[in-house]
Write a protein that binds this DNA or RNA. Sequence first.
DNA 1: GATTAATTGTGATATATATCATGTATGTTT
DNA 2: AAACATACATGATATATATCACAATTAATC
Lengths: 231, 231
Amino acid sequence: MNDLVDGFTCAECLKKCSLFKTLSKEQLDEIYNHRYDTTFREGEVIAKQGSPISNVVSLSDGLAKLVLETPGKPDILLSIVKPTNLITSPGMFLDNRYHFSVISLTDTKACFINMTIIRQLFGENKEFQKRFHYSVGERSVMLFSRFRNLIHKNMAGRLADAILFLSNEIYESPEFNMDLRRSDLAEYSNMTKESVSRILKEFKEQKLFHIENDTARILDMNRLVQIARNG
Amino acid sequence: MNDLVDGFTCAECLKKCSLFKTLSKEQLDEIYNHRYDTTFREGEVIAKQGSPISNVVSLSDGLAKLVLETPGKPDILLSIVKPTNLITSPGMFLDNRYHFSVISLTDTKACFINMTIIRQLFGENKEFQKRFHYSVGERSVMLFSRFRNLIHKNMAGRLADAILFLSNEIYESPEFNMDLRRSDLAEYSNMTKESVSRILKEFKEQKLFHIENDTARILDMNRLVQIARNG
DNA sequence: GATTAATTGTGATATATATCATGTATGTTT
DNA sequence: AAACATACATGATATATATCACAATTAATC
């Protein structure tokens, strides 16, 4: 985890989210003057459900989860964000509040960019605005697929989905460091952590997937995809 | 079900969606010149998941359901739209495809407004654009609450939710004509129609809610709310 | 109005998953 | 290194809900 963010302007930063690549040098400098970055330790709250959205958050290092909180009920893990992802929230165009919480899964570094500047850039740069709405649409469609996974599939299918999501979307490799606890996997797959343990054991026995010393590895991608599909 | 739409321009129409009230006479006339209206019988497909979004649909009469389709699995009823509601889709800013289907629950009448005109109006009328994005945000947040309902609650809670949604949001009365079949309620509440029957029977026995000759009536709002809450 | 089809209701049984209780490993603090 | 806390694993049991089979309405068609 190196330190590229610090000491660089947004224009120079190699860890800015892809959305920002549509911006001019001047616009990036404008952002640079209205941003700050912070580090978080594992488990800390980066943004709290219900609180006002005064900044857009761009993750530069680490991993974070988006969770729906409900008093007295387990959290629902909606999605995971990785570096270079901008965390947009539907509340931005609605009531200016977060409708989910963002919690770090590892030590993370994040840039907070003043919301007013973002809105101002919408007027100045149509391409930026277009891409911003694109990413909002993307997250909505992703929620539809979450709906399907959670509602239609059995536990093995849901957990296989979680593993494939991590491998394909987050770590982009069949082998990766498992930064999620069993309880995170449970929140993602809508089951208890006990059930996660049991199914993980099955996957290991069937030589589909295993975790050893925090290193996760997909051993039989085809069968795992099949379980996720038919689940 | 009267005929206000026909023979009226958009400017005169009393059934235009509230979003359009931000538009000027000229802008409404522009819409009027790029719209057509159609009627649908119960059960007909107004918009099909996967097909291109060439129009924005405004419901002027009847009721329609938004459903997530998955081959080989039961549909997931996401929401219901009623007259004066505009049907926006996250695909509009993404891949220009419907990510759910819209199916009429009753005989309906709908206005189809050319998408290009809508996009054009975004540039002309900031207030219109702003409200449009507001309604997109609203639908997203509504999905979060659907997530919670379906994931955290037991069957009685989920069905009580469905009934309260119909009463509060759709019919705006504790008594209403039940346009949904048991199977629609099942799709909304993620259970089988057999289970819907059984719980409806319980609600009737406990004098909370009953349906007689397609007329639904909430008998004990407080207890129903409590069941939906604690569910 | 009789016949057929579709929707709804009901009971018996099966099944997936949660819950609870407890054990084991792993890591952290003093 | 010992004591404690935290994460993970596993077994026995309970429970909610689906499934299946069929009965009873209600609606549609000839």
